[in-house]
Design a protein around this nucleic acid. Structure first.
Lengths: 380, 380
DNA sequence: TTGTACGCGTTATCAC
DNA sequence: GTGATAACGCGTACAA
C-alpha cells in the first residue's frame, strides 16, 4: 500500500522479472498465447494478475503505429449549444472548497433551470448521430474519442493524433483546415457535399427531403406562398433551400425569397422581421425552416406576435429531433436517420483504415430522409 | 498523392528536416513557443502545416507519462441498452458491397423502427450524465474517451491504460475488478456508496429522495398500501428501497414487500405477477419503482391488464429522464441532477490528477435529488 | 537560442 | 520455445 514501488504502474519488465522470463515472453503471453508453452504462459499471466499489470495503450500505439480508437470531433459545440457555465454560478462552484471537503450534500441552486430536461437543448441532431457512432464503435470493440473546439486548427490536430480515423461535424471553416490530415488518417465529414478531396462523406439527400415536403405542402395544403428560414451559408441549409425551390417549381410555385433575411439566427432577429411582415399583412402562408431549431425559434416568434400555427401560418422543420414531437403544435419535419448515419461513419473509419474502396475514391454515403407529418402544417 | 512517403504519418523528424532544424525545435515550437526565436518558430509551424503534421498522442503520452484525456466507461451498456444489431438487418449491411461503391442512396428499411426517436431508449440516465461529463471536459479543454464492455476486466484495463482519470458507471461486479487500477489513476464511481477504497464517489441522496416521495404519497394521497418494483441487488435500488421503507415508517405505513418479486427485470416478468395480484384483488394502491425504466415497464404491464393509472394504482419512477415527461400518464418521479453529476466527475478527475483532497480521502459528492410531481400519482 | 542523446513501454525481428 | 535488441515518436535534461 504505502511503498513506492506500487505507486508506479507495473510494466512488462516488472512482470517479466516476477515471472522469471523475458519481456518478449510477457508480450507473447498476451498477444500470441499459442506461441508459448503452457507452463510459462500461465506463470506470466499469474504474475501479471498479481501485480495488477495493464498494458499501456500509449506504448502499444507507438509500437504498432495505430491507436485502435476512432474519433468524433465537433467544431464550436460549446458555442452552438450550451454556453460554458460561468464559474461563479457553476453547479459545482466550490467543488474544491471546504464545502466538498466536508462531504456535504450539494443542493440544486434555487435558480437552477436544469430541473427538467429540456428537449430543445438535448438531444439535438448531433447527439443522435453521436450516439449511433458510439453504439457502432462499441459493437466493433473500439473506444471512442470525443473532442470539441472552436480553435479549429490545434484541436483537430490534437484529436487527429490520437485516433485511427476521425468523423467530423461540419462548420463553416471545416474544409481548409482538414485538407492537411487527410493523407494521415481517414476522415468522414457529415452533411457536406462531395468535392475534390480524399474525405469520406455521410449525409442525407437534403434536396429529396425538401422536395417531398414541398409536394406535401402544395398538394395537400394548397400552399402557394412560401418563405425559407435559415442561414444559406451553411452547407446543409443551402441544399435544403435549393431542394425547396425545386420542389415548389415543379408545381409552378415560386418562393418568397425576399420575405425573411437569409442570415437570421434566432428569436432575437426573427421576431422583428416576422413582426414587420405581420404588421404589413404579408406573412407567407408557410414558413419552411432549415432545421428544427430554426422552426422552434419561428414558433416562439409567431406565438409572441399572436400568430396562430398552423391556422395563420404553417411552420415546418428539418432533422426530426425528439423536440419536434414535443413542440406546440408538434412539428412537421423531415427526419434524418441519425443513428444510422453515425453508425455508417464508424464503419467507414473502421473499415477504411484497412481496406479503402477499391476504386480509390472516398465513400459518399447518402441516406434518404423521411417526411414526418404533424400538426404544424395542419395535418392531424 | 501516390508516392510512398506521403502515406506515412509525418513525424517530428520529417518536420525538422523540412524546416532545417532539430527535432527539439519542432517540439518546442508546439510546447514552448516562447523559447524559440520568432523566425524558427514560424519556419517550423509552416513546415508542419505543409506536411500535415499532427503530433502523435501515443508518443507524447509515453514520454510524458500522461495522456491528457479523461475517460468514461460503462459496463454492459450494449446489453442494458440496445442489443447489438444483427449483421443481416444492420442498417448498413452491405456498406462494403457494390451498393455503396455505386454511391446509391441508402433507403431506410421498411421495417425500420428508428423512424421516430424513442425517448424510452434515449436519452437515459447514463446519457444525461455522460453529456454533463462531456460538456465539462470540453470546458476544461480535455478530450473524452468513451468505452463500454461486458468483459469487465480487459475492457476497463484497456481504457485505464489510455486516460489520466476514469469515471465509471456501476455494474454488479465493478469493485473487485477496479481495485487493481486504483493506484494507477484516479477513479470516480457513479451511484455507489463509499467504502474502504481509494475511489471517488458521485451520487445522489437516494434515501432522501425516496423519503420525499413517501411523504408525498402518504400525506397528499393518503396511500397506505405500497409495493416496490426493482432489483434490490443493484446498489441504487437497494438504497431507494431502504429510503422508501424509512419514509413510510415515519408515517406508520409498512411496505408490502411480498407483493412483487424483488428480481423482476421487465414487462415479461412483471405482467404475470401484476396479473396474479390483480386477479386476486390484491394490487397495492401504489407501485413505487426503482427507476423510470421500471416504471414504464409497470405502466405497460398495467395497461395490458386494463388497470387504470392513477385511479386504480399509483405508479412512480426515479431518475427524472425525459421519457418520464412523455409517458401516459406523465410520471411522478425523483429527478437526479444528471448533468451536474457528470460535470462533477470530470472536475474531480481533472483536479484530482494534480491536487487530491488534502486529507487524503477520496471525494464523496452527494447531490440532492428533487421530487417531480406529475399525473401518475394523481396530481395535476 | 538550438542541437544531442536518452528514456518512456510496447511490439516485432531476429538469433539462439 | 525463448531471449536479446531494435524500432516506434516525442519530451526534455544537458550540452553547445
Amino acid at each position: 500500500m504505502g511503498d513506492d514501488k506500487s505507486a508506479r504502474r507495473p510494466t512488462v519488465y516488472d512482470v517479466a522479472e516476477a515471472a522469471g522470463v523475458s519481456i518478449a515472453s510477457v508480450s507473447f503471453a498476451f498477444r500470441r498465447p499459442d506461441q508459448l508453452s503452457e507452463a510459462t504462459r500461465e506463470r506470466v499471466l499469474a504474475a501479471a494478475r498479481r501485480l495488477g499489470y495493464a498494458p499501456s495503450a500509449a506504448a502499444r500505439g507507438l509500437a504498432r503505429g495505430r491507436t485502435g480508437t476512432l474519433g468524433l470531433h465537433a467544431f464550436d459545440l460549446l458555442l452552438e449549444r450550451a454556453e460554458p457555465v460561468a464559474e461563479s454560478k457553476h453547479p459545482l462552484a466550490g467543488l474544491h472548497t471546504p464545502r466538498l471537503a466536508e462531504r456535504r450534500l450539494i443542493e440544486w441552486s434555487e435558480t437552477d433551470d436544469d430541473v427538467l430536461a429540456d428537449p430543445r437543448a438535448f438531444p439535438l441532431y448531433v447527439d443522435e448521430v453521436q450516439r449511433g457512432f458510439e453504439l457502432e464503435c462499441w459493437a466493433l470493440g473500439r473506444p471512442v474519442m470525443l473532442s470539441s473546439g472552436n480553435n479549429s486548427d490545434v484541436s483537430v490536430a490534437d484529436t487527429a493524433g490520437r485516433v485511427d480515423g476521425l468523423a467530423i461535424f461540419p462548420s463553416e471553416q471545416t474544409s481548409p483546415t482538414l485538407a492537411r490530415y487527410a493523407p494521415t488518417i481517414p476522415i468522414v465529414l457529415f452533411s457536406i457535399l462531395p468535392a475534390d478531396d480524399p474525405h469520406h462523406r455521410v449525409r442525407v439527400d437534403n434536396v429529396g427531403g425538401m422536395r417531398d415536403l414541398a409536394d406535401h405542402l402544395v398538394t395537400v395544403h394548397g400552399v402557394h406562398d412560401v418563405a425559407f428560414v435559415g442561414r444559406r451559408e451553411a452547407s446543409d441549409s443551402a441544399q435544403r433551400f435549393d431542394g425547396l425551390c425545386e420542389g415548389l417549381a415543379t408545381h409552378g410555385v415560386r418562393m418568397r425569397t425576399e420575405a425573411i433575411d437569409a442570415t437570421v439566427r434566432g428569436d432575437d432577429e426573427l421576431i422583428p422581421q416576422l413582426g414587420a411582415l405581420h404588421a404589413a399583412g404579408r406573412l407567407p402562408r408557410a414558413l419552411v425552416c432549415a432545421t428544427d431549431q430554426h422552426a422552434f425559434a419561428t414558433l416562439d416568434a409567431l406565438a409572441a406576435l399572436g400568430v396562430r400555427v398552423p391556422d395563420d401560418v404553417i411552420v415546418t422543420g428539418f432533422d426530426g429531433t425528439l423536440a419536434a414531437r414535443l413542440s406546440t403544435p408538434p412539428l412537421t419535419t423531415v427526419r434524418q436517420p441519425m443513428e444510422a448515419m453515425g453508425r455508417a461513419a464508424a464503419r467507414i473509419l473502421a473499415g477504411a483504415a484497412g481496406a479503402p474502396p477499391e476504386d480509390g475514391r472516398p465513400f459518399d454515403v447518402v441516406f434518404a430522409p423521411r417526411l414526418i407529418v404533424r400538426g404544424s402544417c395542419g395535418c392531424a
